[in-house]
Design a protein around this nucleic acid. Structure first.
Lengths: 147, 147
DNA sequence: ATAGATGCTTGTAGTAAGCAAGCATTCGGG
DNA sequence: CCCGAATGCTTGCTTACTACAAGCATCTAT
C-alpha cells in the first residue's frame, strides 16, 4: 500500500484539530472574527506592506484579502496609509490595538501549545518544526512545478 | 521569545498550503465537492458506522455530518442502510462508485506527495508522521483537559 | 405506558473563499 | 503630451463549510 497514506491521514487529522482549536479559541478572545488573526499576523510580519503582497504570500485571492483588511481596519487593528509612490496602493500598518490583539492571540495559542508540548524534548520540537518547514516547501514547489 | 512561535508559524503555513492544494485538486477530480473526500474517507475507514460516530471522530456537529452524508448519498457514493438494532440510526456504507472516487482522490494526493517527498529518506517521512501523530494527540488531550 | 434520552434532519445564520466586473491610477509607446 | 494597456484594489455575486436551535422519530427505563 501507499507508504505516504499514513502521513496524509495524519495531516487530515491535524487539519480537523486546527479547525476545532480555532473554534474553541474564538470563545476565548471574542474581539476578533478569529480567522483574521492569520491575516493580522502576516501584516505584522512584513510591516508596511501592500495588500498584493499579502495575497501572494497567503495564496489567497486579492478580493479575499481586501475584505479581510477592510474588517481589520473597521476593528481599528490596522491602518491604511496612502503609498506616496503609488496612488492606487495602500500601505498597511498594525495599530497599537492590533498589536494588543495579536499578543492576546499569541498568548492563547502559545499557552495551549506549551501545555501540549510540556513533556517534549526541545530537540524534538525543533525537529518537527524543521520537518514541517521542509514539507511545506517541497509540496509547494511540487505544486508550482505541476502547474 | 516564545520557542514554539516558530512551530505555530509553520502550522499556519501548512494550513494555507492545504487550502491551496484542496483548491487545486478540486479542478482535477471535479466529480466531488472536494471537502467531502474527508468524510468519505472516514466512512470507508470504519465500515458500517453511524453518523454519530463520524461526528465524534471528526469533531464536527451532527448536523454538519448529516448534510455531508446527504450529499454523498445524493452523489451515489454512500448508501444508508437501516440499522436492524436501532430504527433511528442508519448504517453507512461506501458504494462501488464511492470507492472509485476515493481511489482517484487518493491517487491524486498520493502522487503529489510522492513527488514532493521524492528525495526524502523514508525514515524521515516516518519520523514526521510519528511526530505529527504525537502532536495532534497531545494537543487534543490538552484541549480536552482545559475544557 | 409514559417520560426522558438518543439519533438524525432541517431551518437559519455566520465566516471564508473565489470569480467576474469595475474603478482609479500608473506606465509605456507614439 | 496623450491614449491605451497594465496594475492595485474594491464590490457584487456565488459556493462551501460550519454551528446552534428546534423538531421528529425511535428507543429505554421505570
Amino acid at each position: 500500500m501507499d507508504p505516504n497514506g499514513e502521513l496524509v491521514e495524519r495531516l487530515r487529522a491535524l487539519v480537523r484539530l486546527v479547525r476545532r482549536i480555532k473554534q474553541e479559541g474564538a470563545g476565548h478572545h471574542p474581539v476578533l472574527p478569529a480567522g483574521l488573526v492569520t491575516t493580522l499576523t502576516l501584516i505584522d510580519r512584513s510591516t508596511g506592506c501592500h495588500a498584493k503582497e499579502l495575497a501572494a504570500h497567503a495564496g489567497l485571492d486579492p478580493s479575499t484579502v481586501s475584505r479581510a483588511v477592510g474588517t481589520l481596519v473597521a476593528h481599528g487593528l490596522v491602518r491604511r496609509r496612502a503609498d506616496p509612490a503609488d496612488g492606487r496602493a495602500s500601505v498597511l500598518v498594525v495599530t497599537a490595538a492590533g498589536h494588543a490583539v495579536l499578543a492576546q492571540a499569541r498568548g492563547w495559542y502559545g499557552d495551549l501549545l506549551s501545555r501540549a508540548l510540556a513533556h517534549w524534548d526541545p530537540a524534538e520540537v525543533d525537529a518537527l518544526t524543521a520537518a514541517l518547514g521542509r514539507l511545506t516547501a517541497d509540496v509547494e514547489a511540487t505544486l508550482e512545478a505541476s502547474r
